[in-house]
Amino acid sequence: MSMASPYGTIHGVGLGPGAPDLLSVRADRLVREARHVAYFRKAGRPGQARRIADGMLRADVVEIAMEYPVTTEIPLTDPRYNMCLSAFYAQCTERLAALARAGEDVVVLCEGDPFFYGSFMHLHSRLTGTVPVAVVPGITGMAGAWNATGVPITWGDDVLTVAMATLPEEELVRRIRDTDALVVMKIGRNLPKLRRAVAAAGREEAAWLVEHAAMPDQRVTRLIDATSVTPYFSILLIHGEGRRP
């Protein structure tokens, strides 16, 4: 006869692209009922995940803000960068695991989907096998972006490529040239490089930039009309033009 686990569960809950009414029913229930709610944020900022959940949390909620260490002065290629983040995620993991071992459930608020380029996956890999962990899928930011354009992202047999603007310029050119439909994330300060890569691949006229998809300040513009300053929540799209009946 099996006994129920004395541990609480860590729930990684996908909140979707930004609009509170794009949460799943399960996500909505977990967020509203949670006694302990954790979320990532940059120091001095409320955090996008917390903003999405604003007004949903119970009055006696215990909030756990996990603030990223400042790593802007360390290049991505420097081993110290990974060491710094690894120590940060280990600290966050132990904090949440301690609550679960005490029998408390914890909801970790995640932008988009927890398993799609999200920080929660770094907790999940460390928590799995030590305490119960569950994941609630969410609508991805890129889905919110291509729906904002009002045009399907793929048709028929189109191949969709998801790339990061942090890639080397030559790699971006190759990826952009060799795919039917394209999503590029993590743009920010990489916009000038991305512009050059899109132009070199001969697809500048087809590229769109969606900023703050599914948020109140959503903006959809053609890449050729976009300014040189792009917010963190921006995604570049090139729609597929594949087989249609």
Rank of each mutant, 00 (worst) to 15 (best):
D178W: 09
V184C: 08
R189M: 14
K186I: 10
L172Q: 02
N190E: 13
A148D: 01
V184Y: 07
P168V: 12
L167Q: 12
A148R: 01
D157K: 13
W155F: 15
T154F: 10
K186R: 10
W155Q: 05
R175I: 06
L172E: 01
E169Q: 14
D157P: 03
R174G: 03
M185C: 06
K186W: 08
R189S: 15
D157A: 15
A163C: 13
L167C: 06
I176K: 07
D180K: 08
E170L: 07
R174C: 04
V162G: 01
R189T: 13
T154E: 03
V184D: 04
G156R: 14
R177S: 14
V183P: 00
R174I: 05
M164C: 15
A148P: 05
N190S: 15
T154L: 06
T154S: 08
A181Q: 02
G188Q: 07
V184T: 11
W146D: 02
T179M: 02
L167H: 11
R189H: 15
P152C: 09
D178A: 13
M185V: 14
D180P: 00
V184S: 06
T161W: 04
G188H: 06
R189I: 09
I176H: 07
T161Y: 08
A163I: 06
K186S: 10
D158H: 09
I187D: 03
V173S: 11
R177F: 13
G156W: 12
E171P: 06
R175A: 04
G150A: 05
E169D: 03
R189D: 13
N190A: 15
G188R: 11
L167R: 11
V162L: 15
G188D: 08
E171A: 15
A163D: 08
R177M: 08
R175W: 00
G150S: 07
W155G: 00
L160D: 01
D178F: 12
D178M: 09
L191R: 04
L167S: 10
E170Y: 00
V173L: 07
V151T: 12
A181G: 07
V162N: 02
A165T: 03
I176R: 06
I176M: 05
E171I: 08
L172D: 03
L191F: 15
I187K: 03
D158M: 11
I153K: 03
N190P: 04
W146L: 04
V162D: 05
I187F: 11
E169M: 12
D157W: 10
P168T: 07
R177P: 09
V184W: 04
G156V: 09
A163F: 02
N147H: 12
D180S: 14
M164A: 15
T149Q: 06
T149S: 12
D157E: 15
V151Q: 14
